[in-house]
C-alpha cells in the first residue's frame, strides 16, 4: 500500500517535473518567465483527444511537434522583441496575453467542458502485478516517457553543440554572442524544447486522467510553476527533485485525508522559499544551468 502511494506520487511528480523543467529552462537561459507555458501543457492534452484513434506513438510525436511549434510562436509573439530594461516584466505580461489567446482558441475548438478520451478499458488502463504491487500500464508509460524526455534533455544540454550554446547563453548572453553564438537561435531552441516537454506532460496527464480539460493550465500548470520556484529559478535538478518531492508529498496528503490542503502547502512552500532561500530549496551551487541573480 505504501509502495502504491509512493508510485502514484512519483508518477504525478514526474509530470510536475516535466513542466517545471520547461519553466526553469527558459528562466535559466533567458532570465524571463514564460506564462504561456501552462497553456501549452493544456493544449498537449487536446493532442491526445485529436490523436486518440491512432497508435499511441503518433500521439507522442504529434504532442512533441505541436508543443515545439507553439514554443516558437510564444517566443516570437511574447519574448523576441522585448529587450529593454523592463523586459523581464514585459515579457511575462506578454506571455500571459498569449496564454489567454491560446486558452480561448482551444475553448473555441473543443468547448469549455473537459473532453473525455475513449481509452476506458483499453491497454493503458490495464493493471498488472509485480511482487504484490499493482501497476497500471499508464503509470509505466508516464515514468518511461519522462525518463526518456529528461534523459534526452540532459544529452542535448551536455553533449551537443546546441546544448553548449544554450549553456553559454545561460551563463552570459553578452559574451556568448561575442563568441559568435546566435542568441536568437538558442532562444528558439530553448522555447521549442521546453514547450515540447510541456505538451508531452499535457498528453500524459490526459492519458492518466482519461480526459483533456482547458483549465488544466491554471491549476496543474501553475502548480508546476510554484514547484519550479521551490526548486530554484533556473535550477534543472531543483525542478526535477521538486516535482518528485511534491508529487509524493501530495499522494501521502491525499491518503491522510489532507488532500484539500495540498495545494495550499505547495504555494506556501513557494512563498516561504522565495522569501528565505530565493535560490531554491535544493541549491548547492552546482547544477546544469548557471544561475544569475
Amino acid at each position: 500500500m505504501l509502495v502504491g502511494l509512493l508510485i502514484n506520487g512519483l508518477v504525478s511528480g514526474a509530470l510536475y517535473a516535466l513542466v517545471a523543467v520547461g519553466f526553469t529552462l527558459v528562466i535559466g537561459v533567458l532570465d524571463k518567465l514564460n506564462f504561456a507555458h501552462p497553456e501549452v501543457l493544456m493544449i498537449g492534452g487536446f493532442v491526445a483527444v485529436v490523436a486518440s484513434g491512432l497508435p499511441p506513438y503518433y500521439a507522442f510525436i504529434a504532442a512533441f511537434a505541436t508543443g515545439g511549434l507553439l514554443g516558437l510562436v510564444v517566443e516570437f509573439a511574447a519574448f523576441r522583441r522585448f529587450t529593454d530594461a523592463d523586459a523581464k516584466i514585459t515579457a511575462g505580461l506578454a506571455s500571459m496575453a498569449v496564454g489567454l489567446v491560446l486558452t480561448d482558441l482551444t475553448q473555441k475548438v473543443f468547448g469549455t467542458e473537459s473532453v473525455s478520451l475513449p481509452i476506458g478499458g483499453g491497454w493503458l488502463s490495464r493493471r498488472f502485478q509485480i511482487a504484490g504491487v499493482e501497476f497500471l500500464n499508464v503509470q509505466i508509460v508516464i515514468v518511461l516517457a519522462t525518463a526518456i524526455l529528461t534523459g534526452g534533455l540532459h544529452v542535448l544540454l551536455q553533449r551537443t553543440r546546441v546544448g553548449r550554446q544554450i549553456r553559454a547563453v545561460a551563463e552570459s548572453p553578452v559574451s556568448a554572442s561575442l563568441l559568435g553564438v546566435n542568441v536568437l537561435r538558442v532562444s528558439q531552441a530553448v522555447f521549442f524544447v521546453s514547450s515540447a516537454l510541456a505538451a508531452e506532460a499535457g498528453l500524459l496527464l490526459a492519458l492518466r486522467s482519461g480526459a483533456a480539460s482547458s483549465d488544466i493550465g491554471l491549476t496543474f500548470g501553475l502548480k508546476a510553476l510554484a514547484i519550479m520556484a521551490i526548486g530554484g529559478l533556473g535550477d534543472l535538478r531543483g525542478a526535477m527533485l521538486g516535482g518528485l518531492v511534491i508529487g509524493v508529498l501530495e499522494a501521502f496528503m491525499f491518503h491522510l485525508g489532507l488532500g484539500r490542503l495540498s495545494e495550499l502547502t505547495v504555494w506556501l512552500a513557494m512563498i516561504v522559499t522565495l522569501m528565505v532561500r530565493p535560490r531554491g530549496l535544493f541549491s548547492s551551487g552546482t547544477h546544469g544551468l548557471e544561475q544569475r541573480a
Binding site: 524571463k32 518567465l33 511575462g92 529559478l233 506556501l268 513557494m270 530565493p278
Partner: peptide, 22 residues
Amino acid sequence: ALRLRGVYLILVTIGITFCARV
C-alpha cells in the same frame, strides 16, 4: 515580500492569491 523584485515578486503575489483561495 516587497524586498523581492521583478519576477520573484510576481511569483509571490500569485502565490498569495492561490493561498487565499485555497
